[in-house]
Computed example of a mutant assay.
Amino acid sequence: MSGVLSSVDARTRLVGQNRLELLLFHLGGSQYFAINVFKVQEVMRLPRLTCIPDCHPVVRGVTHLRGQTVPVVDLRAAIQMGPLNMKAYDATIIVTEYNMTVQAFLVGGVDRIVNMNWNEILPPPGGAGRQHYLTAITRLDKRIVEIIDVEKVLAEIAPYNTQLSPDAYDDSLMARMKGKKILLVDDSHVAIEQMRQVIGPMGLQIVEARNGLEAWQQLMHWKETGLDIDKELVMIITDAEMPEMDGYMLTTEIRRDPDLKNVIVVLHTSLSGNFNKAMVEKVGCDGFLSKFAPEKMAAEVQRLIKTKLDNV
């Protein structure tokens, strides 16, 4: 399975084309689930696990991969479907990198990788149970594929601390930007709430969008109503992977529009590693923030806004 993962060059060719690759898997049953291949380091048969005391109930143990200790999360249990019966299925782990950490997800088996367009990916339906753990759904071979909100899963296992000290904020800058707009674009409720907690104390008017298409429509609405976007909108912070239109395509469209060319766009994503520089440069983002580093977010947001205000 490791040979099926694309190279960095092949993956970055998808950037700005509103396309993605999904790794399909199951959790013991006929339902397909998926995560973005960008996040996957490798797929392998379940290795020997070492149990650790007092760990979260969905963490089955740790394994050692190339000198690194990696926690193994039972993904079926994490999305409230009950623990996976490792003896009944071809137990496999998907080793991933999210938010600058490496973890593995225990699944019942891996199917294949598919290349899709983000406009084929739809927001999930409302509901209880595992619906809360989905960022999107799609159809493949007349079957529903559920795309897991891994950020929510990880945040429940190891909650993030988003409380910053007052020293993290520049009082003189906050007086200058009070009431101006910042557009936050993310399909994850967890990510939006984390950003709100960091940016809220800055006094900015926070506007939210759940995907790139919704953000683009908001920008077009502001243009049509005569809003001075250069003056009133200080920044857009966008996720990379979202239904209907991803963050790369959103940034590409913004850079093509002469009325939006001066808007600061920051890519905020759980992707990390070798892809960041190529992605940011290709689509023309002004900066990159890894999820979730609240101190770095506060510092970078204020730095970029100060630069913008000083040049007005």
Rank of each mutant, 00 (worst) to 15 (best):
Q218V: 04
V70L: 04
H56V: 07
V150Q: 08
M100Y: 08
V185W: 02
D9P: 00
L304V: 05
L173P: 06
E232H: 07
N115Q: 09
Q41A: 08
V43E: 02
V280Y: 11
R66Q: 09
L14N: 09
A299H: 09
N117W: 13
K178F: 13
I192E: 11
M279A: 05
D239Y: 02
L5E: 03
S272G: 15
P71S: 05
L267M: 15
A240G: 06
R256N: 10
L309Q: 07
T307Q: 09
E120K: 09
R139S: 13
C285M: 10
V110D: 13
K291L: 00
P258Y: 08
V95S: 07
K282F: 01
G127D: 12
L106K: 14
I206V: 08
T92M: 10
F33K: 01
L23D: 06
F105R: 07
M86N: 02
L122T: 03
R76F: 06
R19D: 00
K231G: 05
D187L: 05
E244I: 08
V263P: 13
V58P: 08
L27A: 07
N211E: 01
R45A: 08
V15P: 00
P166V: 12
I305L: 06
Y32Q: 11
R256W: 06
Q218S: 11
Q194D: 11
E281V: 01
A136P: 14
I121C: 03
N18M: 02
T162W: 11
L164A: 14
Y89V: 12
N99F: 06
A34R: 11
L309E: 08
A104H: 12
M81R: 15
M174F: 15
V185D: 03
A10D: 04
I147T: 08
G273A: 05
L289C: 03
E224M: 12
A298S: 11
N85R: 07
L227C: 01
Q194A: 14
T225G: 10
C51R: 15
L20F: 01
M297H: 06
M44S: 14
K39H: 11
D170M: 05
R60A: 01
M249H: 14
S165I: 07
M195H: 12
V62C: 08
N276F: 00
G127F: 13
L204P: 08
F292C: 02
M235S: 07
K142W: 09
L289F: 04
A91H: 03
E21M: 03
R196G: 04
L183S: 13
T135C: 11
G247F: 04
P71N: 02
I229M: 11
C285S: 13
N36I: 02
C51F: 12
D187S: 12
K231R: 15
H26T: 10
E253W: 14
G179P: 04
E281H: 05
P47A: 03
E97Q: 15
G203C: 00
T269W: 04
S165E: 10
D90P: 05
L173T: 10
C51E: 14
D239A: 05
V312S: 13
N36T: 06
G212P: 06
V102P: 00
